[in-house]
Design a protein around this nucleic acid. Structure first.
Lengths: 106, 106
DNA sequence: TTTACATATTGAAAATTCCCGAAATGTGTG
DNA sequence: CACACATTTCGGGAATTTTCAATATGTAAA
């Protein structure tokens, strides 16, 4: 598991994408309750569906979907699909690894 | 002193700019001795002149000058002019602050 | 299976970044 | 002052990124 600093930096160089990361630090505080429409109860691990993030970001669904993909390809987000919904959450391990990289290697 | 994460991320999202930061971690190891042409001896604090960096980066002087400016505007480099030369060095404080920001706030 | 909805992908116009050569600026020297 | 040299700034073509609407795909329900 190595750090692609360019990919990560590009992912972080946009206000909305930074906001998404920030919002996902406190999903309960920043988004409506998730998973209510699922047939079976699942542990979403703080994951939030695309439409909730889209509503908060106030951008088109395709843009937000792209942003989430960008953050995921950079390794900063994880996603899990349940039914119709894709739930995105922070990859805390990757974020810690990034902090460590900046501190020791940058 | 607050962190402009977008400015910093943009500065870091380029291979050469990342290399410059890395090279400046070990100026003696990566560049020829600096300051030899100065009339008076000065403590360069590990600073390296633009032409030495340009030679190593293998890009045009104007591009390298631009890159250094980008890194400085992001706060990651410091510069000091002595005679005809501008010596750039890492801003370790800012880099530590960035690591801390990623760890605690991102 | 038809429908409805959540999300992802595609295609394109606008904005930004990359990188250079040319020109300008700063600085010491003859 | 005139010159050489280090660096910066400017102008622009090529490449990339941004963002959307339109379209496609996946999934559950009727």
């Amino acid at each position: 598991m190595d750090i692609d600093m360019i990919e990560i930096s590009k992912a972080l160089s946009n206000k909305t994408r930074l906001n998404i990361l920030k919002w996902l630090k406190d999903p309960e505080g920043n988004f409506p309750p998730q998973g209510g429409c699922l047939s079976e109860p699942v542990d979403l691990k703080g994951g939030v569906c695309v439409s909730s993030i889209q509503a908060k970001a106030n951008l088109s669904p395709s843009t937000v979907s792209n942003y989430l993909d960008t953050l995921q390809r950079a390794g900063l987000l994880l996603s899990e699909r349940h039914g119709k919904w894709t739930y995105y959450r922070r990859n805390e391990e990757a974020i810690m690894a990034l902090a460590e990289f900046v501190k020791e290697e940058l």
